[in-house]
Amino acid sequence: MGQVLSVLDLRKVYEVKRSVFSVKKDIINAVSGVSLDLDQGKTTGIVGESGSGKSTLARCILLLERPDGGSIYFTGKDLLGLPKDELKALRKKMQIIFQDPYSSLNPRKKVFDAIAEPLLFHGIVGKQEAGNRVIEILKDVGLDESFANKYPHEMSGGQRQRVAIGRALTTGPALVIADEPVSSLDVSIQSQIVNLFLDIKERTDIAMLFVSHDLNVVRFVSDEIVVMYKGRVVEAGTKDEVFLNPLHPYTKMLINAAKGEFFRKDDEAAFDGDRGCAYYPRCEQRKPACRDAVPQLTGSKEHKVACFPEG
């Protein structure tokens, strides 16, 4: 199976003014040194809470944000070194699905036009065939033809997200990045959309990055899992390794919360955070050594962790 995506040591830094009047700026390492590989037909889940850098990572990979360092290879080509016109040609092979289907669909466009637009723009079909192709796509995402004539406001959140998914699939992408695609949906609708992602996975050989804060959802759709905390990967590996044998204290906490085990001791340590492990203040297994150096991601391809060993 071919490799679709390879990200190496990706970095993204934001500068934030300390206050409205301040000249001094704080530097926020939104993504610091993230690497990951993704093969055809595989799904990698990226988990972390808000501020972990998971969405920034997703946006950097699609060059919606310009990374400040590292490289991105998409189907073997270095995206950051590519001339504009070649990049444009590659764009149709990379698609994104956003969290909020209310704002990602144009309220003035009927579903038909929303889906036909990328088909016509990229010259995938002519005007005559577009109609049939749109209906096929709607069927693929579980909607009947009557939806072609609807406006976004006439549909429920789940139906809108189906349209957004359909739209992302129109150009036959090699890579789809789904950024919290079920988070804004009600529980009973979430499971329908998760099943739709599984259908797509079975039917196509699209490589998918599935970004979510919900570990249960990620586990269900992913082959591999990457856990992020404050811009860094703290644990990565195959789904079973990460879930059944979590190594990082942060991953363990997330898994417990996903099982409804909320009770833990509550003792945050004071910490300036410049040198040591970013998780130190909240870590239940912290040691003095964790304050002085950042643990590196080490281990096998099946399972890596960034945590100093016991003892």
Partner: peptide, 10 residues
């Protein structure tokens, strides 16, 4: 966030 959520519930 999940961790803060568990603190509040506690």
């Amino acid at each position: 966030d999940v961790a803060t959520e568990s603190q509040i519930i506690n």
